[in-house]
């Protein structure tokens, strides 16, 4: 058995006997791999599986291949149309060098609480399809760098419902370029006659996994957007964030900023209403 195998068809997954680590774009995993890493692990390069590089527009859903890169998300107009928050997260995600390699599937499997694509997928009600099953994204993450994926289970597609919803993403980091996101907020809703419906809010990098801000969602549901409501929503989001203290940023600060970002998104939307 080769320690490094490359498969070019999804069907070939079945042929793999040993437990493997999957390699897609490699932007998250290679920095962790030191020289001679093949001594301890088996790797399976899936970057050549063509069928996982496609995005299909179905009747009710968007079916996104796990190997779709962040550059693809920016370039293919279908994302801006149906998954604006995801498109916005790709824009700020990193340098072109990284965006050209990093894949959505990889970003999800890596399960970093600061993974840029994850809060958008939460608010877009994404489902994660693997070679074995399909799961709601809400149930996919178990902790930092931990998912429900079993041995040799591979994310194959991301399914996003084609809803008539608005969605947004914003993040704050220490520096504009290449910042590992400090705090990020994604948000989706329908706006009907100035009233918010079907609100979803997700927060990145303020807890062990990306988390839904359910109290904020409940608070905003059915509300008329106004300055007062926005301010209150900001306060609620701050209270829902569960950041850890590290040297990159202080917990109190992250909470506060989560609130500010949400306010900024809603203020932008309010301006547009007026």
């Amino acid at each position: 058995m080769e320690k490094f195998i490359k498969i070019s068809k999804l069907a070939d997954l079945k042929k793999i006997k040993n437990p493997v680590k999957f390699l897609a774009g490699g932007t998250d995993i290679y920095p962790l791999l030191k020289d001679g890493f093949l001594e301890n692990e088996f790797f399976c390069d899936i970057s050549g599986i063509k069928e996982l590089k496609e995005t299909k527009i179905k009747k009710d859903v968007l079916e996104i291949g796990a190997l779709v890169t962040f550059s693809d998300v920016i370039e293919n107009p279908v994302f801006k149309k149906y998954a604006n928050a995801l498109y916005e997260s790709a824009l700020v995600m990193g340098s072109p060098q990284i965006r050209n390699r990093a894949t959505l599937g990889g970003n999800i499997a890596n399960a970093s609480p600061s993974g840029d694509s994850i809060p958008p997928l939460f608010v877009l009600k994404a489902k994660i399809k693997t070679n074995l099953r399909t799961v709601d994204i809400d149930r996919f993450f178990m902790g930092p760098k931990k998912t429900i994926l079993k041995k040799n289970e591979l994310i194959t597609r991301i399914i996003i419902p084609k809803e008539q919803k608005e969605s947004y993403f914003m993040k704050v980091g220490p520096r504009k370029a290449l910042a590992i996101s400090k705090v990020s907020v994604a948000m989706a809703f329908k706006m009907q006659k100035g009233v918010l419906k079907d609100v979803r809010v997700a927060l990145g990098a303020v807890g062990p996994t990306v988390l839904r801000a359910k109290k904020t969602e409940d608070f905003l549901e059915g509300k008329h957007l106004s300055d007062r409501i926005i301010k209150k929503a900001g306060e609620i989001v701050s209270s829902e964030a569960m950041p850890i203290d590290d040297f990159r940023s202080l917990a109190v600060y992250r909470r506060k900023v989560a609130g500010s970002i949400l306010e900024k998104i809603l203020e932008g939307r309010l301006k547009w209403v007026r």
Binding site: L23, G25, G26, T27, Y30, P31, D45, P96, Q97, R101
Partner: peptide
Amino acid sequence: CSILLDGKIVNSCLLLAPQ
């Protein structure tokens, strides 16, 4: 360590030989 790989700019430190 940027290179153009099939016309796209990528970091060559994040690429393995088979790729």
